[in-house]
Design a protein around this nucleic acid. Structure first.
Length: 596
RNA sequence: CGGGGUGUAGCUUAGUCUGGUAGAGCGCCUGGUUUGGGACCAGGAGGUCGUAGGUUCGAAUCCUAUCGCCCCGACCA
């Protein structure tokens, strides 16, 4: 039992000026965190307790045996957070990752300046664990293995946001699985997915697993765990069939599988379009060529070489989908880069064979499937002020490869069920990746099988943003008065409000109840402060302890105490004599509800 | 990094346009009265107005630079 008067819970009546969203305001008002600087937070005693509860449950769920997958759970270890930069340079994503990494300099190290940093602060640990496993595991007998840690991560986010939601230093559970083959890696992946689902369920968070883009991590497939919330950074696309994907990854069955190639409608014809540089201008009078019959040609630079992406004029590029093309780094090309290759400025670009000034410079022409719906359409002539009509997809466009590059829209048919797609915002609290051999190849993490053959290990990597989850819980579970903690992660499960702490019989009662609750498995906070009742009630609601007990001088005279769950409005009055047993029973019932 | 906003006491802020030497509420300290939903009265402490220059007789206020923070965009647990 903690006595509030000897503890430290600095609550605030007013919201801090720099907090915008409910969970951020409550985080600070309830005394869970304090800001040091943008994206850097101190966990105050109450906030730390929640972090510890989240971590403990996370450990239990990760280490639990997964009988259905015939393998042991994950194994905890602890890796350094200062990494020699050479390991990152050797890894597969240095070019992309270095931007978000904090680097160390040599200040205070008694050395001169070096040109390159020697150490970086770890944003995640693939580059550390893979060499470790390469060194320690060489036999199939030692596989599979899944290692994890719960530790601080450092990312120099371009824009930290919303308190713990996107911080520069944050707490993450990161796990890495190593399997002998792909089938094993899939098992490990599914076992982790099951562990994640169990974890989020236990902590009282409604998180849904959605298909996700693999981004800079690479790998073959991945799921994100999303907490639905208006303030979330991500769009979840879903349908009532159960399909759910991050917008970056989402697709639709807009183009029928059996769609035949359109026959040419006539010879390609050039026409003058002076001053027309947008899809909208061409769609307007006097041209009146609707966006869904125009070909939009975008130019990107992939690892230094230009490539083209063709979409319907009415569609938007989903940039993340270009990741499937295999470039390490890509970005939109500048007008200066475009003109020498295509022969025109943006606004008159096209991919019709023979109109591209320097086709040899291109790394490829990638077309979205949806342009097949156009069949015959209009595109730029690669000559400023001119467009081409009667352009036929199969006859006239020099397409290297078709793919899914467009951003889906709600209302389009779900790729699984055909039901209309819907969209909602979500907070990404966890992510799992099946990595394949990408890192194992780079670091030479191989093992020998029972035929004396050497193979790369097949990896998976997994993350849960523990500190972000803490805030997501608040975002998902609060009301106008404060936080409503789920039982399992509450900093304390029971709050005893002693309205008259100076009354010896009240204090005696409080201690008796606290002992009963603790024996039943609850953590107890005793508000023994010399404050007026109103202050105690307001604070109680604000910090959101699930079960509140009120011991007041008046009630005690009538032989009763009060019991009120934070989540409900009902106050139960209980006879003093029955109180300890009743409280213990309630505690056990609640605890069972979250471990069952 | 682009766009927008903001910086005054521990917190929330007024004052800035129109220059005259900083005010409130909360919190804190002392005393008293109170005590079931953020009490009241009296007294008190606390501010180089983000920082550095400049204009001016005089700058929180005008100008320049710089830093921090917040929001929107591209990135991420």
């Amino acid at each position: 039992m903690k006595r509030w008067s000897h503890y430290f819970v600095p609550t605030l009546k007013e919201s801090p000026a720099d907090a915008e969203i409910a969970s951020h305001k409550l985080l600070v008002r309830a005394g869970l965190v304090r800001k040091l600087s943008g994206g850097l937070y101190t966990f105050m005693p109450l906030g730390l307790r929640v972090m510890q509860k989240l971590s403990a449950i996370c450990r239990e769920e990760l280490e639990r045996e997964q009988p259905s997958h015939g393998r042991a759970g994950a194994i905890e270890l602890w890796m350094p957070h200062i990494h020699p930069v050479e390991l990152w340079e050797q890894g597969p994503r240095w070019a992309a990752a270095r931007e978000i990494m904090f680097r160390t300099d040599h200040a205070g190290a008694g050395k001169g300046r070096a040109k390159e940093p020697e150490f970086v602060l770890g944003p995640t640990h693939e580059e550390i664990i893979t060499p470790l496993v390469k060194q320690e595991i060489t036999s199939y007998r030692d596989l599979p293995k899944n290692f994890y840690q719960i530790a601080t991560k450092f990312r120099n986010e371009i824009r930290p946001r919303y308190g713990l939601m996107r911080a520069r230093e944050f707490v993450m559970m990161d796990a890495y699985s190593f399997d002998a083959d792909d089938a094993g890696a899939v098992k490990s992946y599914l076992a982790m997915k099951a562990s994640y689902e169990a974890f989020f369920k236990r902590i009282g968070v409604k998180a849904i697993a959605v298909e996700a883009d693999t981004g800079v991590m690479g790998g073959s497939y991945s799921h994100e765990f999303m907490v639905p919330a208006e303030i979330g950074d991500d769009d979840v696309i879903y349908s009532d069939s159960g399909y759910a994907a991050n917008r970056e990854k989402a697709s639709s069955s807009l183009v029928p599988k059996d769609l035949a190639d359109a026959a040419p409608a006539g010879a390609v014809e050039k026409f003058a379009t002076p001053g027309v540089v947008t899809i909208a201008q061409l769609a307007a009078a006097p041209y009146a060529i609707s966006g869904d019959t125009q070909f939009k040609t975008l130019v990107y630079m992939g690892d230094g070489k230009p490539f083209l992406v063709i979409l319907r004029g009415s569609d938007e590029l989903e940039e993340a989908k270009l990741g499937s093309l295999g470039f390490t780094l890509f970005r939109a090309a500048t007008a200066e880069e475009i003109e020498p290759v295509l022969g025109a400025k943006p606004g008159s670009l096209g991919a019709v064979k023979g109109t591209i000034k320097n086709p040899a410079a291109l790394a490829g022409v990638f077309a979205d499937h949806a342009i097949r719906l156009i069949g015959n359409g209009v595109t730029g002539a690669n000559e400023d002020g001119f467009h081409l009509k009667n352009v036929n997809v199969t006859r006239d466009l020099a397409i290297t490869q078709f793919g899914d590059f467009r951003r889906v829209r709600t209302g389009e048919p779900c790729p699984v069920s055909g039901l209309p797609l819907q969209s909602k915002r979500g907070i990404e609290v966890g992510h799992i990746f099946k990595l394949g051999t990408k890192y194992a190849d780079k670091f030479g993490a191989v093992y020998t099988d029972d035929q004396k053959q050497s193979h790369p290990m097949v990896m998976g990597c997994y993350g849960i943003g523990v500190s972000r989850t803490l805030q997501a819980i608040i975002e998902q579970s609060h009301d106008a008065d404060g936080i409503i903690w789920p039982w399992a992660v509450a900093p304390f499960q029971v709050l005893i409000c002693l309205l008259d702490p100076k009354l010896p019989e009240a204090m005696e009662m409080a201690e008796k109840l606290a002992a009963a609750a603790e024996a039943a498995g609850a953590d107890v906070l005793l508000d023994d402060r010399d404050e007026r009742p109103g202050v105690k009630f307001k604070d109680a609601d604000l910090i959101g302890i699930p079960l509140r007990i009120v011991i007041g001088g008046k009630g005690l005279k009538d032989g009763i105490i009060e019991l009120k769950p934070r989540a409900s409005k009902d106050v139960q009055k209980i006879a003093v004599a029955d109180a300890p047993a009743k409280l213990a029973e309630l505690v056990r019932a609640n605890a069972q509800g979250v471990t069952a």
